[in-house]
Amino acid sequence: MTRLEKVFNQKETKNKVLVTYTVAGDPNLGSSKKILNDLIASGADILEIGVPFSDPMSEGPVIQKAHERALKKNIQFKDILNLCKQIRIKNKNVPIILMGYMNSFLSLKNKLAKELNQAGVDGVIVVDLPYDESKSFFNNLKKESIDLIRLISPTTDSKRLKRMLASSSGYLYYVSLKGITGAELKNFNEVKNKVKKIKSQTNLPVVVGFGIKDAPTAKKMASFSDGIVVGTKIIDFIEKKSTPKISNFTKSLKKAIN
């Protein structure tokens, strides 16, 4: 059983999964490592670690600035892999997912899957790699048992979803809104209906992300999904130099969804 499968198997005990997103190297590598370990200690079940990119097209202003802060520290892909290794040494169970843009992953060429595996990474999310373009990338990752986590959006129709599900693994990430990270989430019922539809077509777990900024929203979203992703709000604490507040915030989310 993979680490991701183990985490989602808690479903039997009806526990919902808390996924956190932070950017590697924000505000610097040392703090980044400490923040990630604190997140695990406060209840994060899966770590999504952002790979900073010069042109983060799907991000709102808060996460854009996180990418810029990390790049100012001149963070390299090998630093990110090292960071993952260090997390993995301390914690054998928490799934680590790298989330980023295609050009960053391409920079490792054919060594990518192997390097990810050696660093203890469980899966990747590539924001600008839709299903249509992902065949060879998916197959290469598969060789090293790295999951390619698919993003599903409000505009994905059921025919397309069916095709996507045929080559999906790990879990599915439902993007709750048409927009960028950190945007305002308006229509709960629409999200609920869409997630229900997806779940009727697959056994893979579905987590909901984008626009979840507080415990009450997290609770609502978790009520019909397998878990939630929170990113912007955590990074907001980093931007405001109040990282000590992250722990309590994370604990409050964990409590709210279960």
Partner: peptide, 12 residues
């Protein structure tokens, strides 16, 4: 070439 965009834009 190709279509390297986020899932939301594919329909458009």
């Amino acid at each position: 070439g190709g279509k390297y965009v986020s899932e939301t834009l594919i329909t458009a």
